[in-house]
Amino acid sequence: MNIFRLAGDMTHLLSILVLLLKIYATKSCSGISRKTQELYAIVFMARYLDLFTDFISVYNTFMKLIFIASSLAIVWCMRFHPVVRRSYDRELDTFRYFFLVGASFALALVWHDKFTLQEVFWAFSIYLEAVAILPQLVLLQRSGNVDNLTGQYVFFLGAYRAFYILNWIYRYMTEPRFTRWIAGISGVVQTALYADFFYYYFISWKNNSKLKLPA
């Protein structure tokens, strides 16, 4: 474990806490893409198939359980919670994410570390996570004004993978024969997709103005 990876995991956890706070405090999920939340639930379930077979550490197992439980809880809230579900922007959250799932799985069948069920699903989860934010970014562009907690949620979610890139660079430099091409390349693509969001987020922070993404 290095400081970059710890910062990445803590930032990721923070993004989830901010989203839970937004939904719990405002009893609303307006501005949140349910499709992105569902994609993340798939990402975690596909990536942590080894949850009960490979024990890495208490921290690792604990965080995996947190990520799976929180993503499923958020999807449940957005679908079934009597109050929260009413504020879902159904007519704006229309990204056809089936293609993202299909393309990620097809790529995982071609490019993986080992051709085993666990490794193919792991690669699938890496590729799917890289594009999982797209429905959310599209929703932000369509929904005009973005409330602070939603903006912070997306910012931390994008920042965590940037920390992971620093972590991979650090491990590449300090550990012999360390390579993570699948996660590394996907991580760069994932972080690049946030580039324009980060720009407008920085502008809104500098001008102390409302975050607004151009349509």
Binding site: R5, D54, I56, N60, M63, W122, N167
Partner: peptide
């Protein structure tokens, strides 16, 4: 020895 778990990250 077992190859180090190459999925020690989240």
């Amino acid at each position: 020895t077992e190859q180090p778990a190459n999925h020690d990250e989240l």
